[in-house]
């Protein structure tokens, strides 16, 4: 117990943070571009985005291995052009976390961008504001509560990712041993005390983030109700 390494905690936080950042940017941009527009194939595209939410993690892991493996299309390309190896590295863990948490961010962001009257954006446009200005001064602040909810959920999901991570990132102490993997291998090796410790830590992390989100949302709703 005393010799237990805390590297899984920091590694998990690092991977989840980077993944959440990527998912946030991609989710916000794609949701803003897609949610308010109607075009052929829209529902197919959105279904593809949500697919990782309903697929078993092993399928996601297999797909990622297929794409990012050393002989995979993207894996080969990344290796040849940038010398980046995805499989069995912490980058692989980030990619797995990105893929499984993206649907949560996309859904939240998509709902958030449809949750206000689109005429406020039109009004800003007729007042001469560029599309970029409209996005940062109008759309983004108005969608912010939903975007924040999506971010917290994505972070929690990224923190808990296991199946796809094990498949694409493997288990390399100090590099890809996130908390869920540490729990799995601690249980496998019969180190129950250590497993319990990690379980407590990850439950605390997940619980506190969702608790904070609920508290924040309620506070904002109350504030809004009182104002109006």
């Amino acid at each position: 117990m005393l010799t237990m390494s805390y590297s899984p905690l920091f590694l998990s936080l690092k991977i989840a943070a980077i993944a959440t950042l990527l998912v946030f940017v991609a989710g916000v941009i794609l949701a803003r571009v897609i949610s308010r527009n109607l075009f052929p194939g829209k529902s197919i595209l959105e279904s593809v985005f949500l697919l990782p939410l309903v697929l078993p993690p092993t399928v996601v892991g297999f797909g990622l291995l297929y794409l990012f493996g050393k002989n995979g299309i993207l894996g080969k390309w990344l290796m040849d052009w940038f010398g980046v190896q995805v499989v069995f590295s912490w980058i692989g863990a980030v990619i797995a976390a990105v893929v499984v948490s993206f649907p949560l961010m996309y859904q939240s962001a998509s709902a958030a961008f449809q949750n206000y009257d689109s005429n406020v954006e039109n009004a800003a446009l007729t007042m001469g504001a560029s599309r970029l200005k409209v996005f940062f001064t109008i759309s983004f602040p108005l969608a912010w509560p939903g975007l924040l909810a999506g971010t917290v959920l994505s972070f929690a999901r990224a923190l808990g990712e296991f199946g796809a991570t094990l498949m694409i990132a493997g288990y390399i102490p100090g590099q890809t041993d996130t908390i869920p993997l540490a729990i799995y291998f601690a249980v496998e090796a019969g180190r129950m005390e250590q497993a319990k410790m990690w379980v407590l830590i990850i439950v605390a992390l997940g619980f506190s983030s969702t608790l904070w989100l609920n508290w924040w949302t309620r506070r904002n709703v109350l504030l809004f109700n009182r104002k109006s």
Binding site: D117, N119, V120, N122, A123, A124, I138, L142
Partner: peptide, 9 residues
């Protein structure tokens, strides 16, 4: 606009 579309924030 019909509903004025003031920026609520």
């Amino acid at each position: 606009f019909q509903n004025y579309a003031l920026f609520p924030h």
